[in-house]
Design a protein around this nucleic acid. Structure first.
Lengths: 240, 240
DNA sequence: CGCGTTATTGACGTGTTTCAAGATCTGTGG
DNA sequence: CCACAGATCTTGAAACACGTCAATAACGCG
C-alpha cells in the first residue's frame, strides 16, 4: 500500500513539474500545494511565438506549465544570443520586472503553456520558494557568463548538459541522468555562443567517447563524472 | 548667483556619486536626498580584498561610495571570469540575496568604500530608485552575456566602453565622453573573456583609428559614434 | 633610484568559423 | 503507406580570430 501511495505521488509529480520544483525549493504547506495543483494554463503558445507578456508593471508571476522557452537578444545582422533557457516548472519573470524588448525578448522554443502563479506573501513558505527560485535563476545567468567567457566548446557543452540535467531533475522531469532536451543544435549554438557546425562536431566527439547519448529530443549522460571533470561543474542547487 | 548655485550643486554631486545616481533613477524627495547625503562609509577596503559581505540574510543594501569592485568566478586552473563590475554609486547586492562563494565572490578592484544604504519602503521614491537600480544592474548582466557570446574582440571592447561611459555618467563621474577607468588590461580581459595580450592589440587598433584615448586610469571616447556603429550598442538606460 | 606591475610587440599554434555539399529526419498530403 | 519538402544534422577543406609563449619596454610607487 505504501508502495502504491508513493507510486501515485510520483506520477502526479511528474505531471506537474511546477509543483515538484517549488516543493523542492521550500517545504510547502498542504494548502499551498493544493493551490499550485489547481493552476491551469491561461495561455498556450505555439513554438517560435514571442511570449509578449503584457505591459502590466509588476504583474503576477508566471509559471511554465509545460514546454521550453528562451530569453534572447538579436543583432541587426541576424546574429542572436540566448541569454537563458526556461524549463517546465520555472518562473518566467523571476523579479517581476519587464525587460524592454530591445534588450531581450522571450520566445517559445516548443509549444508552451503558461499559468499565473498563486500569489504569496514574502514570509510564507511559497513566498520563500519563489525567492529561492529567483536566486537559482540568477545563478543560471552567472553560469552562462562563465561558460561564454572562459570555457572552450567542449567545456561549455558539458557544463550546460549538467546544468540542464539538474534543472530537469529539480522539476521531476529527469529519469536518472536522462532528460528531455528539445533543442536543435542551432539553438544550442545560440545558447553557447558557438556555430551549430561546431556544436555538432563537439557532440559527435562526446558520442564517440561514450559520454553522451542525444537523440530525438532526449539527452542521456552516460558518464556524468567525466562531464563534471571536464568542466569544474558547480551545481547552482548548492543554493538550497 | 544662479551660476554659483549650480556650481555648488555640481560640485556636491560629483563628490557623491550615489546621490547623483539614485536621484537620476527616480525623483527623490528632499528628505531622501538628505538621508543619502548623510551616508558615511562604514567599511573601507584596500584593492584586491574580498568584499565578504557578512552572513546577514536579507541584510540592508550596500552602496559603493567610492572605488570599483567586480563580481568574479575563478576556476581551479586559474582562469577567471569577471561576471560584472561595480562602479561608484551602484548597489552591491541589488536583490539582497547572498550568492554562495563557490558561485561568485566580489572583490575590490581599487580601494573601495561602502556604506549601508538608507532603508526605504517599496512605494517610496527611494524604493523605486532601488528597484530601477536593480533592473539596470540586471540589464548589465544580460549585456555581458551577449558581449561574450556573440561579439568579436573589437565589438566587445566598444560595447563595454560605451556601457561604462553611460554608467559613469549616470553617477556624475563622466566629463562628456571621458570617464575614470581604473582597470588593467588583464582585468578588461577577464571581463571580456579575452587575453590581456589581445585586449592590448585591440586597444592599439582603436587608438590608431583615433577612436579612443586610454591612459593613466582614464578613458576618453574620441568618436563614440564609431564605437556605437561597430557594436549595435543598446543603452540599458532605456529602462528609465 | 630601483623593483614589481603593467603594457607592448613578434612569431607561431590552434580552436572555431565559414562555406558548401550531402545525408538524414519529420511531418504532411496524396 | 509512400512520396515529397523543409528542416535538421553531418562532414570536409580552407580561412581567420584569438591564444600562447616569450622577450622587452614603460610605468608607478616606496
Amino acid at each position: 500500500m505504501m508502495a502504491v501511495a508513493r507510486g501515485n505521488e510520483t506520477a502526479r509529480a511528474e505531471a506537474m513539474p511546477w509543483v515538484t520544483r517549488l516543493s523542492a525549493l521550500a517545504p510547502l504547506s498542504a494548502a499551498e500545494i493544493e493551490d499550485l495543483e489547481r493552476c491551469k494554463p491561461d495561455r498556450t503558445l505555439p513554438s517560435h511565438r514571442d511570449i509578449a507578456l503584457q505591459r502590466e508593471a509588476a504583474g503576477p508571476l508566471r509559471l511554465v506549465i509545460s514546454g521550453w522557452a528562451a530569453t534572447i537578444r538579436e543583432f541587426r545582422d541576424g546574429r542572436r544570443q540566448i541569454l537563458g533557457l526556461l524549463l517546465p516548472g520555472e518562473i518566467v519573470n523571476p523579479h517581476g520586472q519587464r525587460t524592454p524588448s530591445n534588450l531581450a525578448t522571450t520566445i517559445a522554443l516548443t509549444e508552451i503553456a503558461l499559468a499565473i502563479a498563486p500569489s504569496a506573501r514574502g514570509d510564507s513558505a511559497l513566498g520563500r520558494a519563489y525567492q529561492v527560485s529567483a536566486n537559482l535563476q540568477d545563478a543560471y545567468l552567472l553560469s552562462q557568463i562563465t561558460r561564454l567567457g572562459r570555457m572552450d566548446a567542449y567545456e561549455r557543452l558539458a557544463d550546460l548538459l549538467l546544468e540542464l540535467r539538474d534543472r530537469a531533475a529539480l522539476a521531476g522531469l529527469a529519469r536518472g541522468d536522462s532528460f528531455p532536451l528539445p533543442l536543435t543544435q542551432d539553438l544550442i549554438g545560440d545558447t553557447l555562443g558557438l556555430t551549430s557546425v561546431h556544436v555538432n562536431r563537439t557532440l559527435q566527439l562526446m558520442r564517440r567517447e561514450g559520454i553522451l547519448d542525444l537523440r530525438s529530443g532526449r539527452a542521456t549522460l552516460l558518464q556524468p563524472e567525466k562531464l563534471a571533470a571536464a568542466t569544474d561543474y558547480r551545481p547552482a542547487t548548492s543554493l538550497l
